[in-house]
Simulated scan of single mutants.
Amino acid sequence: MKIYLRKNQTTNEYDTISWESSNKDISLSFPFEISAVYADKISKVIVEKYELQKIGFYVLNGELEFETDIPSIKGYKFRGLNKNLSSKTGVSLLFYPDEPGKGNQWGDIEQYELVEGADCLGKYLDIYR
């Protein structure tokens, strides 16, 4: 499924997401910047609401199924969402090291599995390149 992010003309930030489901156009707008990906393996749209420190799981009719906190990893900063077929949901969480001694020698961004549930942080998948 193809999803579309649209920018707010005033702020120039993505704040609207849309897609087609069951021959209907679905559109969700937010009063803040968002990022989103389609999770193929669970047929849901995942919306990152960084300003609120939340991740929303939306069913294809546009209804919010549930929302959870963006997880944290000590010594790392959250970077965003990414499609990843190694994840049970088809989406990974990206983190980059922000403390000495964390991550590899190059400071690569790391991918962790996004899983459904209150604690959405799954297993380490790999570095992101």
Score class of each variant (00 low, 15 high):
88 K>G: 07
88 K>C: 06
89 T>C: 09
90 G>N: 05
90 G>T: 08
90 G>C: 06
90 G>Q: 03
91 V>R: 00
91 V>F: 02
92 S>M: 04
92 S>V: 04
92 S>D: 07
92 S>R: 00
93 L>T: 02
93 L>F: 04
93 L>R: 00
94 L>D: 06
95 F>P: 01
95 F>K: 00
95 F>S: 03
96 Y>M: 15
96 Y>P: 03
96 Y>F: 14
96 Y>S: 14
97 P>R: 05
97 P>A: 08
98 D>G: 09
98 D>Q: 13
98 D>W: 14
98 D>E: 15
99 E>A: 15
100 P>L: 12
100 P>T: 11
100 P>W: 11
101 G>A: 13
101 G>F: 05
101 G>Q: 09
102 K>S: 11
103 G>L: 06
103 G>A: 13
103 G>Q: 11
103 G>H: 07
103 G>P: 04
104 N>V: 13
104 N>Q: 10
105 Q>F: 13
105 Q>S: 13
105 Q>M: 10
105 Q>W: 10
106 W>L: 14
106 W>F: 15
106 W>N: 15
106 W>I: 12
106 W>K: 14
107 G>E: 12
107 G>D: 14
108 D>F: 09
108 D>W: 08
108 D>M: 09
108 D>E: 15
109 I>E: 02
110 E>F: 02
110 E>A: 09
110 E>K: 03
110 E>M: 03
111 Q>K: 04
111 Q>E: 15
111 Q>P: 02
111 Q>R: 05
111 Q>G: 04
111 Q>Y: 00
111 Q>W: 02
112 Y>C: 02
113 E>R: 00
113 E>W: 03
114 L>A: 08
115 V>H: 05
115 V>Q: 08
116 E>R: 03
116 E>M: 07
117 G>C: 04
117 G>N: 09
117 G>W: 07
117 G>P: 03
117 G>M: 08
118 A>H: 08
118 A>M: 09
118 A>T: 14
118 A>D: 09
118 A>E: 13
